[in-house]
Amino acid sequence: MSEAHVSDTHLPVAHQFEDEEQQFQSYSLGMWVFLAQELLFFGGLFTAFIVYRHMYFDAFVAAHHKLDWKLGGLNTLILLTSSLTMALGVRTAILNNYKATIGWLLATCALAFGFMGVKYVEYSSKIAHNLWPAGDFVFKQEGIDAGGAQIFYGLYFTMTGLHGLHVLVGILIMGWLVFRIYFKRKEVVDYIPIELTGLYWHFVDLVWIFLFPLLYLIG
């Protein structure tokens, strides 16, 4: 696996920075710091999941069988593909080929909408089957504690809901980037917002990589 060397990007340097390199490092650092706290934000929910899975093991296993792993798997493939299109979008932006960047960003957006569409199908089927934990929750199975299953669905909706919110925010940011590149092309000589959005989007993918096996496959 080789790497392409890209030099000579010539970004405008804001007055608070020494040079382009320092400016890039500062922006990039800010994003990594943000992602580190995002990791802890989701980490709290994962900790709760581990604790409750331990307390209500049988209920969690029984409850997770009602989730459709095929839809979860489809969403995994959609998000992985969107990560690829995003990575290619960032690459074209760094190479100063903004026309291609618009295409890749729109492709990523379309995949994100596809992800939300699958989520919509899943959520409505769960709610139709009385598995919305805040409503008339019904879970009848021999020897299974319905309360434990309710906690599983509470965590399921919280974790995937928070993740879905991140996907929606990602769609908004990508839409803004496309708008900015398309209408203000001459002023956009700066790939950094696209690169940072890419980091955010890969993080969203990363969270789903853990959510999918924990919720859909193992329970």
């Binding site: 382009e20 390199e21 493939l77 690459r91």
Partner: peptide, 25 residues
Amino acid sequence: MMTEHKMPDIKTYVIVFLALVGLTF
């Protein structure tokens, strides 16, 4: 000032993507 920006090439991205899909299956 020029920035040296190293990034993977397209082939690497595709290989990584295929590995991710394979691991999902």
